[in-house]
Structures are given as C-alpha cells and as structure tokens.
Design a protein around this nucleic acid. Structure first.
Lengths: 206, 206
DNA sequence: CCTTCCTTTGACCGACTGGTCAAATACTGG
DNA sequence: CCAGTATTTGACCAGTCGGTCAAAGGAAGG
C-alpha cells in the first residue's frame, strides 16, 4: 500500500488516477466473471498496469473487491433513500422505479457485480444486507404501509412490492444479453421505462 | 469417457449412478461459483469421487457444464411451452406465472446456474438464446398479441410482459439470500405466490 | 480358475493462481 | 542539482488449476 496513506483517501494525483484505473478495471472483470472467476492478471492487463503495481495500491484481490462493494452499496441505495414520505405516494413510487431503472441503464456493470455477489450467496456482504439494507427497507416499508392505510395506494404487500421494483429494474442490466437476444434487432429495446411505469401504475392504483 | 458409450446414454447402472452424482455435484458447485470460479476438485469432492474418475465420465470441465446447461434449457422452457393459445387468456398467463414460480422454488440451483451464465454474458449459450428461446418467445408473443387484439387482456407490451414474468419469478431463487436478509425472521417468506398472482391480475385485466 | 472388460486411482504435468521482494526508476521539495 | 520519497517492475514462490497416463482393482461370464 502507498506509504502516505492510512487505508483511506489517496494523496497524490498519481495515486488517485491509478486507484481509479484499478477499480474501473476490477469492476469490469469482477462483474463479468464473479470474484473467484476473476484474476489479478486480467485486472492488471485491463488497467494497463503490472500485477505487482496493482498490489502496491491494494493489499489483496479481496481488498479490491471489498472496496468496490462497499462503495457500491452506498450509491446503490440512493434512489431508495430519496423516496420521501411527504410526497404524493404514487408519484413518489413511480419516480423511484424511474431512478432505479436509470441506475441500471447507466451502471450495468455495478448491477452485475452486485448480482454476481448475491447469486453466489453474498458471502462478502451478507451482514450489510441484514444490517443497513434491511434497516432502510424497513423504514420505507413503514411509509408504504402508512400510504396504504390512508388509501392513497393499493393494498399490496410492501416488501414484495419493493422486491418487484428491484427485480424488474435490475433485470434489464443483469440479463441484458438475454433481453437483447430475445428482442432481436427489430423489436425496440427502449420500451422498458414506459412499460414499467404503466404496470406499476396499475399495481399501485387503489 | 466410458468405452461402451457413444457420447450419449449411459449403459450400465454404475455409469448412470456416477454420471448423476457428478452432474448433481457440478450443479451445486457451478451454481454457487460460476463456471470459472468452480473447480474440478470441488466437484469431485462433492460427488465423492476422485478427479481422474470424474474425467473418466466426462472429457472436460466444460463438457460437464455444457451437459448441465443443455439439459436445463429444455426443462426450463417447459412452463412456457405449456402456455396454450386455446385456454382462457388471463387464466393461462397466471398459470404460467405459477408454474414458473414453482420451478424457482423447486429448482433454485438450476435457476442460479442459468443466472450465473446470463449475468456473465452467456458466452456458452448465446446461440441457444438467439435460436430456440427467441423462437419460442416469438411464438407466444404472437398468441399474446392476439389476445390483446381480441380485448381479452390489457394492451401491454408482450415481450416486456414476458420479461416481467421471468424477472419476478426467478428473483426469488436467484436473489434468495437478499430476500431472506431483508425479510428477516418475522416477515412471512411465502407471500410471493399470492402477491404475484395479484399484481399480474392487475396488469393483465383490460 | 482365468480372461476380459469396466472402473478407479496415485503420481505427475505444464500453465496459471495470488502474492512477495529487492532493485530499479520517476518524482518532489529544497 | 541533489537527496529522499513515491512508484514501478522482473524475477520469483508455493499452491492450485485442468488434464493425462500407466497401472491397479473389480465384476462377470465361461
């Protein structure tokens, strides 16, 4: 690890650049092969650095992966955090769906990194799921339950409603190749946002 | 490869048993680590056989994986094939959702094997996706379009409707750990079937 | 019993894995 | 320019990877 660095912020411009290079390359490789399937040589090549140079900036393969995941968990939940209890219920939830779908469109590699981790049993982030994630979801579920009680939205199971949103939005990032393979070249690929807005409107309308 | 075997059906009872052992172990290992993350030693240990013995029944690691995938593709599409154009439209589609969800419940490892493959870019089954899968989907989409034209179901995008069904049902197998982590111990895990039936009824009702 | 064929395995191979290290190189402030 | 620090790398290591092979063990019919 670089000397002038106590496990956090990079100091120099060169450190910043190389850390970014490494994390970018690692995101690419981890998201396409999973943790065990990815190799340091691949990441190094992708980053345009030598393998020992990689390990000068990060102490191990797992450290790179952890850095990606913990950095991800934060921004990944932002769309949900932005769900305000004060807003108009259906509009708030549809906006959440939009944000989540936009997230999948802009950051498909991050989505697949996460998907890989979960599908493979989430050995490295299970605690975060049971902790921070569950806490945030519980909080928003309370809001949704309130809206239901007030008759503002339909009485659907709040947890499973949230799972639906995650599932449907991330599907377009995680299963992208399948979606493209099935749609072929003629069918429009970008009908997803309108479709999702339409069905969630139906689901949520009392 | 066993001598009395021309690339297909096992002959003796011992071949049958060992092939089953290997494929079962391989399913377990591949579905939790992906193709590259899985090792022959792991599979051998899981199967209770030695590694050279594994390679007596299958020529390579990839051959085992291929066998699993091609065997899977077939049964995985059965629920969709069973969707009959002659039935009552909404009932047929809801029954399809049910079958698909039941599939995820009964065969989560198969679902995760498939998910792993797709998330990682489907390098080994892309052709099957563009071929058999697309063909079957196109056929069923035609049926759905017909139902829509007759006003039997709501006018929703047929391809994306199918993606929704896949996404939502498989989510409970592929993201099982996340679902369980978020639900915790108090919330009921088995509300999914009723929830899905409810929302798809809303989506499909004209 | 012996022969024949199916099955299993220990020892081994070259390639690759994550990771180390000392030495070389670039960069910085004085 | 120089000293000191930050960065980079070639050579290397022990362990693991997928896969081979010759030889041993097992079953079954004659």
């Amino acid at each position: 690890m670089p000397v002038g660095q106590d496990a956090k912020r990079p100091r120099t411009r060169i450190q910043q650049r190389n850390r970014d290079l490494i994390l970018g390359a690692a995101l690419e490789v981890f998201s396409t092969h999973g943790f065990r399937g990815a190799t340091l040589d691949q990441i190094a090549t992708e980053a345009g650095l030598s393998k020992p140079n990689l390990l000068y900036y990060f102490p191990s393969k797992e450290a790179i992966h952890n850095e990606l995941l913990s950095g991800l968990m934060d921004t990944w939940l932002d769309p949900m955090r932005a769900l305000k209890s004060s807003g108009e219920p259906i509009g708030e939830l549809l906006a959440y769906v939009d944000r989540k779908l936009e997230m999948s469109r802009l950051y498909p590699r991050e989505s697949r990194l996460f998907a890989n981790e979960i599908v493979q049993g989430a050995p490295r982030i299970l605690e975060a799921l049971k902790g921070d994630l569950k806490e945030l979801v519980d909080e928003k579920v309370a809001v949704i339950r309130d809206w239901t009680k007030q008759g503002k939205i339909a009485d659907v199971h709040p947890y499973h409603l949230i799972f639906s949103i995650w599932s449907l939005t991330q599907h377009y990032a995680d299963f992208d190749v399948q979606v493209r393979a099935v749609l072929g070249d003629e069918e429009p690929y970008d009908a997803a946002p309108a479709y999702l807005r339409e069905i969630f409107l139906k689901i949520l309308t009392p």
